[in-house]
Computed example of a mutant assay.
Amino acid sequence: MTETEQGSYVEPGEFKRDTNYITTRITADGRDGYPAEPGRYRLVAARACPWANRTLIVRRLLGLESAISLGLCGPTHDKLSWTFDLDPGGIDPVLRIHRLRDAYLARFPGYPRGITVPAVVDVLTGQVVTNDYAQITLDFSLEWTAYQRAGAPELYPEPLRSEIDEVDARVFREVNNGVYRCGFAGAQDAYDAAYDRLFTALDWLSDRLSGQRYLVGDTITEADVRLFTTLVRFDPVYHGHFKCNRSKLTEMPVLWAYARDLFQTPGFGDTIDFTQIKDHYYQVHTDINPTQIVPKGPELSNWLSPHHRETLGGRPFGDGTPPGPPVPGEEVPAGHGAR
């Protein structure tokens, strides 16, 4: 999603985010009319978008590539919609559409809200099923178990769900959305308040993670996925572009080591396209960056430096195993990742 596509807006003062999504769910029992069936659905995402990036990571970790196909939009878009600029002729090869908007309108003619990624589309009808990004990843974990790979980790284990939900709520409010409140604040006092809230939360996370490897429990969970996609964009985008500049991620030792630990874990860093991330933010947000100049920095090879977080213990995948390499055709282009 982007700010304008999400229906978010800037009024004098605080940035607001529209959180009304298409809440239809794909479930094992098909109670909303959409049963979990391999080959029936296509996940439409963009590597640039942090909200869509979550679905790419969870799909990789759970090994759902063969069950749910992937369509990738380019890093920029026109005023109407995300577009399939990366595909030959600008047409998604499965859905046969140029704009994701077409799938929304196929189900909801005159759809009044933003055309956002991620979205799951029913290949049979060409209609969008859901764009409720938070529920999509939870349902990948809970409703698609029959089609997950052998050794898939539990990202939302039942004994930890209440704690995961509590952490996720604060991370969304103060960090995931907090960087946007800084970047799109419409007044100085609103920016100052958003800035203080963001770094108060980052300090809280640093304290929490100083003595434990992962956010909740001793394995990777949904909470880590949700925090990671903001942290990985912090220095390339949020520090400068969104004025979140008290400290760079590389200047916050605990969070920097934590982020590198996840980045170097299969399923995380191999979904990150820094080139598309920078192209999106700096070229699309012309109200913030009217020249559309994309910065060359920062240095990215340090993402591969030792993190030493393994000394805190923990088992990344619990009783499961790491995912294999990205499936052919879904690799991040050479030169677009850490190098």
Rank of each mutant, 00 (worst) to 15 (best):
P75E: 12
L61D: 07
Y133Q: 03
A119G: 07
P93V: 12
P93W: 13
P112H: 13
P112S: 14
D132V: 04
V120Y: 09
R107I: 00
R101C: 03
N131M: 06
G110S: 05
L72C: 05
T125D: 10
R96E: 07
L105G: 01
I97N: 04
L86H: 01
G110E: 10
G90Q: 12
P75K: 12
H77M: 07
G126A: 07
L70D: 01
A67W: 13
A103M: 02
L105W: 12
D122V: 03
T125W: 07
S69F: 05
Y111K: 06
I115D: 06
A134P: 04
A67M: 12
W82G: 03
V58P: 01
V94K: 15
A67V: 10
A134V: 14
D78T: 09
D78I: 01
G89T: 08
D122L: 03
V128Q: 00
V123R: 15
V117Y: 06
V129Q: 08
I91Q: 03
G110A: 09
R99V: 00
G110V: 04
G74Q: 12
V120C: 10
P112Q: 14
G110Q: 09
P75A: 15
P109Q: 13
Y104R: 11
L80V: 14
T83Q: 15
L95A: 02
D102I: 02
G74E: 11
Y133L: 03
H98F: 00
R101N: 11
L70M: 14
L61E: 09
L64I: 14
R96M: 05
V117W: 09
V123Q: 13
N131T: 05
G90C: 13
P109H: 13
G126H: 04
T76D: 07
C73R: 10
R60V: 01
G71M: 08
E65C: 02
E65Y: 06
P88G: 05
L124A: 15
V121A: 11
S66N: 15
I91P: 00
L124I: 02
N131A: 08
I68R: 01
G74S: 12
P75F: 07
R101E: 15
G63H: 13
